[in-house]
Nucleic acid binder design. Structure first.
Lengths: 341, 341
DNA sequence: CGGGGTTGTCAAATCGATTTGACACCCAGC
DNA sequence: GCTGGGTGTCAAATCGATTTGACAACCCCG
């Protein structure tokens, strides 16, 4: 249980030098004779010496680790196929830079967020990456406490908090426009609450494409719901039960699109013959469904990489202008869309 | 960038006491007058004081955090729907116990594992939870270094390393036996390499059920592949192209089962009319596919909880007998299985 | 042979918190 | 008034590593 750690003192003793000299030898900063360095290195190797992390952090004043905060909009950062890809990008960058990532289990409420303020003020982490929706006040507190924050897949309107986001409005626009070009005139919308950026932007893009196609908006064709496949199934059920149901539906995430497809199948509708469906994300699963899903591909890994690099720049003080980076996306046409019959 | 931290010294100064007294007051251990305690508390509040984590760890000798190591069998702990559920269980326990979880990005090779040995020997973490396949030698090194290790969904044969696993053999047995009871005589197997416990055990369970049903094993009906939906699609393609193809297939994970279903669809086979399919895991997606997947439900969250509690016990020295806990599972019959026609 | 310049090593201070033990103070009792 | 038992506070030591500056030991050169 309590096997005692080998400390620098042990190494120094074995090498027959003082502690500071051993430190110098290992870190190679100052003048140490080759012979001494060799002896210290050898001693460290023999004793399997590893510097005590807490002690280093204390004296060096940095922790070389960052926190990844799952926003309140997700049930958990592990359950989300979209963030999995984003985190792959994030992880690659921090790994290469020698940083550790601290991830907590899924936050169940916004009240758990202050935990990260504490970690930041305890100097346990050098920076914070927030994925998804988060309380504005919290972000401001953290920044005020001197800890760099970068937002991922979300941004605070009008505030200069650095962020990396997908062009949600553009993606929703391309998807809807494509459906209109296929000849659909009744295009349903399964989206998210418009009181946060993602929900608002996708709704805007959808409406703009309709307008440009000369189609008036029909609130009866729009359902705003939480991001959940089951809720999407219900929502699509409502739309498909209308007297004059949509012949195409744009769902703002792939998960929702899968729910829509399930609802269509339950009603015996063929896809894409009876109903065209477009999602957004291009999660891995999208290409293996039957038929494979037409969707808007978000540059997920790139999103993670950009955000991670921004945070590193902020931590190192290289860059100080907070910017919001908007990444372009791309419509990927697969099997769930077809002309209006 | 460098906003200076408020330390205990600042709090003490503001309260008009010495540093040790302030510490006593905040931690409430020894005798401190009520008046002094009140003043210190007030000062701490005003200054938004948070103890420096590294300093505490240094003096207290523990970090109150554990590492979660994704094994080498997965592309990433984020991409895996199965481990998402397991981690939900793990997270709940550690959260409640006041421990932090450190998770690294997906390991790409076994060579990255020593990173955790370092963290352990740097006393950065109090314990390690390894999810999935991992190098035996590494586990032994870590334990030898005095850091408790618990294995999740894997175990080391013949070695007394504490672990929590699913009854893989039992699950494979129930699934195969159920297919046999439905009247199928040619039952395919899409499994994993038999050179690690999961692969071996599922294969054993499958063979045992066949034997009990009086069906001889047919190596031509068995495909051993990496856990990947695409590879499962290919493997099922091979099986379904046989002169005398299987009328039922047991795939050792739900993800593989989805790949099998895709392959069947590509060949115009109806499920379950032309082909019965059973998976194992019961990932969230399993119940929303079309038709919903018959599968063996693994006690995923319970698995995580048990492993987390075992690790806590080891860290606290409460329990010292390494045990391997085998969790029972349950066949969930849904829509992908039917009688042989 | 002594002064200036290297060169290698170590003593001491530091980071921020906690724990131990010494000290001053007060009150009661003989 | 002196002793003894509490009580509250603080000085000092500690955890393990790093950094600064002092101090030898040595060399070269005039």
């Amino acid at each position: 249980m309590r096997s005692k750690t080998t400390s620098l003192r042990d190494v120094a003793r074995l090498a027959g030098v003082s502690v500071p000299t051993a430190s110098q030898a290992l870190n190679g900063r100052a003048r140490v004779s080759d012979e001494t360095r060799r002896r210290v290195m050898e001693a460290a190797r023999r004793l399997r010496y590893t510097p005590h992390a807490a002690a280093r952090r204390l004296i060096l004043g940095r922790s070389d680790s960052v926190a990844i905060v799952p926003g309140t909009n997700m049930t958990g950062i592990f359950s989300d196929l979209f963030y999995r890809a984003v985190l792959t990008g994030v992880g690659g960058v921090f790994e290469e830079a020698g940083y550790r990532m601290l991830i907590t289990p899924p936050l169940r409420s916004a009240s758990q967020l202050p935990q990260f303020v504490e970690m930041a003020s305890a100097r346990e982490i050098d920076g914070v990456l927030v994925a998804g929706v988060v309380d504005t006040r919290w972000v401001e507190d953290t920044i005020a406490a001197g800890t760099p924050v970068v937002l991922l897949d979300n941004h605070l309107s009008g505030r200069p908090v650095p962020a990396v986001v997908n062009d949600n409005a553009g993606g929703a626009y391309s998807a809807t426009r494509y459906l209109a070009e296929l000849g659909h005139t009744r295009i349903g919308f399964v989206g998210a609450a418009v009181d946060y950026p993602f929900g608002r932007e996708t709704h805007d893009g959808y409406r703009r494409a309709l307008a440009e196609a000369g189609l008036g908006p029909d609130p009866g064709l729009e359902r705003l719901i939480p991001i959940d496949a089951e809720r999407a199934r219900e929502a699509a059920g409502v739309l498909l039960s209308l007297a004059d149901p949509p012949t195409a539906i744009f769902a703002v995430t792939d998960l929702l699109a899968l729910g829509v497809i399930t609802a269509a199948r339950e009603r015996g509708l063929a896809i894409p013959a009876d109903l065209s469906v477009v999602g957004m994300d291009d999660i891995d699963l999208a290409s293996v469904t039957n038929p494979p899903l037409t969707t808007v591909r978000i540059a997920k890994e790139e999103m993670g990489r950009r955000a991670a690099r921004m945070l590193l720049d902020l931590i190192r003080g290289t860059d100080v202008n907070p910017t919001i980076v908007v990444l372009p996306n791309e419509l990927v046409v697969r099997g769930t869309t077809g002309g209006r019959r």
